[in-house]
Write a protein that binds this DNA or RNA. Structure first.
Lengths: 195, 195
DNA sequence: CAAATAAACTTTACACCGTCAAGTTTCGCG
DNA sequence: CGCGAAACTTGACGGTGTAAAGTTTATTTG
């Protein structure tokens, strides 16, 4: 079989990642520590070393899992939208925002300065999948410069999400915040959708 | 005199903040540590405790200084712009981006999850000053909902800056990146300027 | 089936960190 | 001049990442 089952614990690697997500959610991104997730999983403090050579590797794995749920959040929002291409883009943005607010800790980590994703194929695949959603929904508007359109949408929604997550005093997550974003999105000229 | 000159060092508090900025710039936001900045300033590891009760306080002071330079960067860019109100907004955004790219470490910290600014008056003043610039330049366009206009501009430029600083593979700082932002900004409908 | 091998995990140890509790030096002021 | 207070040093404690060595368990192999 391809997936080898660990001997003692059951599936320590997955348990450590989940513990990491829980820890980040409850105590913030900087609270992620090898010894804490080890204690949560009920193993010794050096047990994680066999699965993650360093804290950076654990963080990378947690962030990769975050990207997968992030992609799923956008896809779920898109699936509920059955309107124009512009409605689809807006729906994806709302899925983007809901993830950022629901998983603010790992969201900060995903787009923080501590991610060196280019060297990890798992993280690279996960983040490429997320960017792939953006590319797909922007395709109908990308007449001449696709990257320009993608970056514009991404910057707007990411900036809004980041400012809210950073605890900006004039910006609180919630139902009203989604309405505010709809208004912001309305100011964006994406051109006419084709095909 | 209001500013009391320290006895031994000269001006340790300012030296620690500058060392913190240098350290963050060279080794990243997470490398900021009390013991390192103390060593940089040539004092013992416990000396900073007298000026900053905890690492969080040091970080807050460094972030506040970052906000002051951030505001100065936007003001400098605005001063060079002598065009329409829309040109002024664009210029401020370019000043925003230049700061984010030149001081990417402290920029990450400023908008990261570790800032609890509401309790520090110095940081609050510094960040309010930065937001004040945004409010001022958006005022000509704020017909009905000023906050909406401000948030739209802020989100777009902040998202773009954050994605670039986070090391996004499809987005590198530099001259070309400013051109890309000009294109993005052109897609934004701010309405007609008044007064 | 039993022995050998490899993997998972534990224990121990070390350097670095933030922080507290003292002690020491130096400045400012009466 | 001396005395109090401020600035700084020294030492210690618990917590962290990580490396090395030892122990337990599962898988593979003869």
């Amino acid at each position: 079989m391809p997936t080898k089952k660990p001997h003692h614990h059951g599936n320590l690697r997955a348990a450590l990642i989940q513990a990491g997500l829980d820890l980040i959610q409850s105590e913030g991104p900087d609270a992620l520590s090898i010894r804490k997730v080890a204690a949560m999983a009920g193993v010794s403090h050096a047990a994680p070393a066999h699965h993650f050579p360093s804290l950076a590797h654990l963080r990378t794995a947690v962030v990769a899992e975050g990207y997968r749920r992030f992609t799923a959040s956008m896809e779920a929002a898109i699936a509920e939208a059955d309107g124009t291409p512009r409605d689809v883009v807006l729906a994806a943005c709302l899925g983007y925002l809901r993830f950022a607010w629901a998983y603010s800790g790992v969201f900060s980590l995903m787009f923080g300065p501590n991610v060196h994703g280019h060297d990890d194929p798992d993280l690279r695949d996960a983040s490429d999948a997320a960017y792939g959603v953006l590319v797909r929904i922007c395709a109908p508007f990308a007449k001449d410069d696709a990257v320009q359109t993608e970056l514009t949408v991404w910057s707007l929604v990411h900036g809004y999400a980041s400012l809210a997550v950073a605890g900006n005093r004039r910006l609180e997550p919630g139902e009203a915040a989604e309405e505010v974003f709809r208004g912001m999105f309305a100011k964006l000229d994406l051109g006419a959708a084709e095909a």
